[in-house]
Structures are given as C-alpha cells and as structure tokens.
Amino acid sequence: HSLRVHINGKDFEVHNADEHVIRALEELIRRGADADELKEFLERWKG
C-alpha cells in the first residue's frame, strides 16, 4: 500500500506500508499522538 500522511503542513509518503505499519499509525492517531510523534514513527519505520 501507499499511504500519504499530512503532518504539520508536510506530506509524508509511506510506500509499501504493510498492514502492521498502517494499524500502528492509526493507533497513534487514535491515541491523539502529536505531529512530532507521528513523524518520529514514520522516520523510524523508513529506517
């Protein structure tokens, strides 16, 4: 899957995101994670 996440006016393109990554991202958003947390998660995932 390809996923586009809009954080703090920046678009993050997440390519080849598997279900696990997408679910983790949705969980963060549901918990009310702020932009920094989401960005950190995506950067860690992209490795």
Rank of each mutant, 00 (worst) to 15 (best):
H1M: 06
H1T: 15
H1W: 02
H1V: 12
S2H: 09
S2C: 08
S2W: 09
S2Q: 07
S2F: 13
L3K: 01
L3Y: 13
L3R: 00
L3T: 05
R4N: 15
R4E: 13
R4T: 15
R4G: 10
R4Q: 15
V5P: 01
V5K: 00
V5Y: 03
V5D: 02
V5W: 04
H6F: 06
H6Q: 11
H6E: 12
H6I: 12
H6A: 05
H6G: 02
H6R: 06
I7K: 00
I7W: 03
I7R: 01
I7T: 02
I7A: 02
N8M: 07
N8E: 07
N8Q: 06
N8D: 12
N8R: 02
N8G: 10
N8Y: 06
G9A: 01
G9P: 00
G9D: 03
G9L: 01
G9W: 01
K10E: 14
K10Y: 10
K10Q: 14
K10N: 07
D11V: 15
D11I: 15
D11S: 09
D11A: 11
F12L: 04
F12K: 00
F12W: 09
F12A: 01
E13H: 09
E13G: 02
E13I: 14
V14I: 14
V14T: 02
V14M: 06
V14Q: 01
H15P: 06
H15I: 12
H15R: 09
H15C: 04
H15K: 07
N16K: 05
N16R: 05
N16W: 06
N16M: 06
N16A: 08
N16Q: 06
A17Y: 04
A17K: 05
A17Q: 07
A17N: 03
A17W: 04
D18H: 08
D18S: 13
D18N: 10
D18Y: 04
D18W: 03
D18L: 04
E19T: 09
E19A: 11
E19D: 09
E19P: 08
E19L: 13
E19R: 08
E19M: 11
E19K: 11
E19C: 09
H20Q: 12
H20A: 13
H20V: 12
H20F: 13
H20P: 08
V21M: 12
V21F: 12
V21I: 13
V21L: 15
V21T: 12
I22P: 00
R23P: 03
R23W: 10
R23I: 10
R23G: 07
R23Q: 10
A24P: 00
A24S: 08
A24E: 14
A24K: 11
L25P: 00
L25I: 11
L25W: 08
L25A: 02
L25N: 00
L25C: 00
E26P: 00
E26H: 09
E26A: 09
E27M: 08
E27L: 08
L28Y: 05
L28Q: 05
L28H: 03
I29S: 03
I29G: 02
I29E: 02
I29C: 04
I29R: 02
R30H: 12
R30M: 13
R30V: 12
R30P: 00
R30S: 13
R30D: 11
R31T: 12
R31C: 02
R31A: 13
R31N: 13
R31I: 11
G32Y: 04
G32R: 03
G32A: 05
G32W: 02
G32D: 05
A33V: 10
A33I: 06
A33K: 06
A33H: 05
A33C: 04
A33R: 03
D34R: 05
D34K: 07
D34S: 13
D34H: 10
D34V: 05
A35L: 14
A35F: 14
A35P: 09
A35I: 15
A35M: 13
A35K: 05
A35E: 13
A35D: 09
A35T: 13
D36I: 08
D36T: 10
D36S: 11
D36H: 10
E37Q: 13
E37T: 08
E37S: 08
E37C: 04
L38V: 14
L38Q: 01
K39Y: 15
K39L: 15
K39P: 01
K39W: 15
K39M: 15
E40N: 12
E40R: 13
E40Y: 06
E40M: 07
F41Y: 06
F41H: 05
F41M: 09
L42K: 01
L42Y: 14
L42A: 04
L42R: 01
L42P: 00
L42E: 02
L42T: 04
L42D: 00
E43K: 08
E43W: 04
E43F: 06
E43R: 09
E43Q: 08
E43D: 14
R44A: 14
R44H: 15
R44K: 15
R44T: 15
W45I: 09
W45C: 03
W45T: 03
W45G: 03
W45Y: 14
W45V: 07
K46P: 15
K46V: 15
G47A: 09
G47Y: 08
